[in-house]
């Protein structure tokens, strides 16, 4: 009778031999559930804070990322019409040759790591350079920061 009572305490479908394992799995599921939810909720705020929102708008973050991605201050983040990949049209930045990569069987990007709110500083510095260039004329070094 004791055995029967014990068996009745178990959840439906759980054999006595696996009761402990099923309990562990149930608890692991709770941990994963809370982990997934907390992570899902925090990802967007973390990304926003790190990359400079609200000082930069999300669209400006996208612009700044393009400039880092291709090491080209003139790159911007633009939407494309319907005739864009995967539905046709040329690949984005198809003829862009400014990206700094070590090409080979294991390509390695050479763009810098983006630090906390570094995109805000990148934008401010670039705009300062542009103002200086406009004031000093096209021969000023600020007009050709890469050289």
């Amino acid at each position: 009778m004791d055995t029967t009572e014990k068996k009745d305490d178990l959840p439906l479908g759980t054999p006595p031999a696996f009761a402990r394992m099923h309990t562990i799995i149930r608890r692991a599921c709770y941990v994963l559930l809370f982990g997934l939810v907390i992570e899902g909720a925090l990802t967007f705020p973390l990304l926003a804070a790190w990359y400079g929102v609200p000082t930069l708008t999300p669209a400006e973050v996208c612009d700044e990322l393009q400039k880092v991605m291709y090491s080209d201050d003139s790159r911007t983040c633009e939407t494309a019409d319907l005739r864009s990949p995967p539905l046709g049209g040329p690949g984005e930045a198809q003829h862009q040759t400014t990206a700094q990569d070590e090409w080979g069987v294991q390509p390695k990007p050479l763009y810098p790591r983006i630090g906390f709110r570094e995109l805000v500083r990148n934008k401010e510095e670039r705009e300062a350079r542009e103002r200086e260039c406009a004031a000093e004329g096209p021969d000023h070094p600020s007009c050709n920061p890469g050289t």
């Binding site: 990304l47 790190w50 990322l65 991605m69 990949p85 930045a93 198809q94 990569d101």
Partner: peptide, 24 residues
Amino acid sequence: IFLPTWGNMFDAGYFWHYNNLPVG
């Protein structure tokens, strides 16, 4: 906006030459 930003933070597979492939 979202995918390359996430990629830059955790996995540059979603940042490096993003949208450069013919399928995007």
